[in-house]
Amino acid sequence: MYIFLLVLVAGSAVAFQGWRTLLNNFAVDVGHLSGLDIGIVQSVREVPGFLSLLALYVILIIREHRLAAVSVMVLGLGVGLTGTMPTTSGLVFTTLLMSFGFHYFETMNQSLTLQYFSHTEAPLVMGRLRSVNALANVLVGAAIYGLARFMGYTAMFAALGGVAAACGLWALTRDPSQTDLPMQHKKMAFHSKYWLYYVLTFLSGARRQVFVAFAVYLLVSKFDYTVQQVTMLFVINNVLNYFANPIIGRAVNRFGERTVLSIEYATLTVVFLGYAYTESALLAGMLYVVDNIVFNFAMGIKTFYQKIADPADIASGMAVGFTINHVAAVFIPFMGGLAWMTADYRSVFLGAVALSVASLALTQCIPAQLRKARSRG
C-alpha cells in the first residue's frame, strides 16, 4: 500500500503542482482574467471537494484503491486540457475536471493511510508521502523553469497531465488491499463526539483557501512576479518541505497534536498580517514560503481524528472531513475576489487572521477530547 500510494502521490503532485505554478500567469498573460475571475475559478475548484461525500457511494461500486487510481487519471486529464481553454468558462470546466480527480484521490489517500497504518506509523507515513510530494514538486518546478523559454503553456499543461494519467493507469494494474481490516461504514454520518475534528477542519479549509486563491495572485498582481519567479518560489518551498515533512511527522508523535497545531496557527496569524501590510516583494515571498511549510502541520488534525475515531469510521470521517473542509472553500474565494475588487485586498488577509486565532483557541480542547476517546475505549 505504501508503494501504491507513493506512485499516485508523485503523479498527482506533478500534475497539480504544475497546474498551480502555471495557472496564475496563464490566467493573467493569456486569459487576461481579473481578480474576480480568479476568485470564480478558485471557488469552482472547491466544488468537488464539497462533494467528497459522494465518494462513499462510489466505493459501493468500486474499491477504494481503484477509485484512487481512476481519480489520478481524471486529474491528469483536467490538467492536460487546461492550456487549450484560456477563457474564464474554459478554466472553470478544466478546473472542475482536475479538481474532481484531485479531491477524490486525496480523500482515498488519507482514508487508506489511516486504515493501513497504526497511530504511530500514520504521522511518519504522511510525512514521507508529503516529502515525495515535495520532491516531485521540485522536479516539476525545475522542469517548468527551464521549459518555459521553449514551450508554450498548452504543451506544458499537456505534458504534466500526461504524467499523472500514466501513474493512474499503472495503479489500475495493482491490488495492494488487505482483507483483514475493519469493514468501513459507507454512508454519510455526523457524530457529535467528533465535533472538534469537524470545526478544526472547517476553519482549516476556510483559511487555506485564502492562501491558495490569493497569496500567489498577490505576488503576481501587486509585486509583478514572473512565471520563472513563481516557479523558483515553489521550488524553494518544496526543497524545504522535502526535509521538513518527516520531521513534522516525528514531532506529532513526540509533542502531540495540540502543540504542533498551536505552532501552526500562531505562525499563520503573523503570516497573514504580513500579507496584509507588507510593501516588500521579498518579504511577501518569504511569508509565502513560511506559509507553505506550516501548512504541513495540519496533518495533526487527521492524526487527532484517527486517535478519537472508531476504526470503521475512518473512510466516512475522511469523506465528511473533506466536505466540511470545502464548505467555506466554495464561497470564500468568490467573496474574497469581491472584497479584493470592491474594498481592499488587505481585508481578505485580515479575515484569515481571524480564522487563525479561532483555530488556535479551539486547539486547546484537544487533550480533553483525547481523554474522552480513551475512556470510551
Rank of each mutant, 00 (worst) to 15 (best):
F4A: 03
L5A: 06
L5D: 14
L5F: 07
G11D: 12
A13F: 02
A15I: 05
F16E: 15
T21L: 12
A27L: 05
V28C: 04
H32C: 01
L33A: 05
S34N: 06
V41H: 12
V47E: 07
G49K: 00
L51K: 11
L54H: 05
A55P: 02
A55F: 04
S71V: 00
V72S: 03
L77E: 02
T84L: 11
T88G: 02
L91M: 07
V92R: 01
V92S: 02
T95E: 04
L96R: 07
M98W: 03
F100L: 11
G101E: 13
F105K: 07
E106F: 02
T107R: 12
N109C: 08
L112G: 00
L112W: 06
P123C: 00
P123D: 01
R128G: 09
S131F: 07
A134C: 04
V138R: 02
V138S: 05
Y145R: 08
Y145E: 14
A148V: 13
A148I: 13
R149D: 15
Y153A: 06
A155K: 10
A159Y: 03
A159E: 01
A164F: 09
A165M: 10
A166D: 12
G168L: 06
A171I: 09
L172R: 14
R174L: 10
R174S: 06
D175R: 07
D180E: 04
P182G: 14
H185Q: 13
M188N: 08
K193Y: 14
W195A: 10
V199F: 01
L200V: 03
T201A: 03
G205Y: 13
R208Q: 15
R208S: 15
V210G: 06
F211G: 05
V212S: 04
A213Q: 03
A215N: 06
L218T: 00
K222M: 00
V230H: 05
L233T: 11
V239K: 02
N241H: 08
I247E: 02
A251N: 11
N253Q: 08
T259S: 13
I263K: 08
I263G: 02
I263R: 06
Y265C: 12
A266P: 00
V270P: 02
F272I: 03
G274C: 06
Y277D: 07
L283P: 00
L287T: 04
L287M: 04
Y288I: 06
V289G: 03
V290L: 14
D291L: 07
F295P: 09
F304K: 15
F304R: 15
Q306A: 14
A309R: 12
D310Y: 08
D313E: 15
A315Y: 04
G317P: 15
M318N: 12
A319S: 08
V320N: 15
T323L: 09
I324W: 05
I324C: 01
A329W: 09
G336L: 07
L338T: 04
W340Y: 13
T342H: 09
R346Y: 01
R346C: 04
V348K: 10
F349P: 01
F349K: 04
S356E: 14
A358F: 07
A358K: 00
A358H: 02
S359C: 02
L360C: 03
L362G: 11
Q369T: 13
R374C: 09
R374W: 08
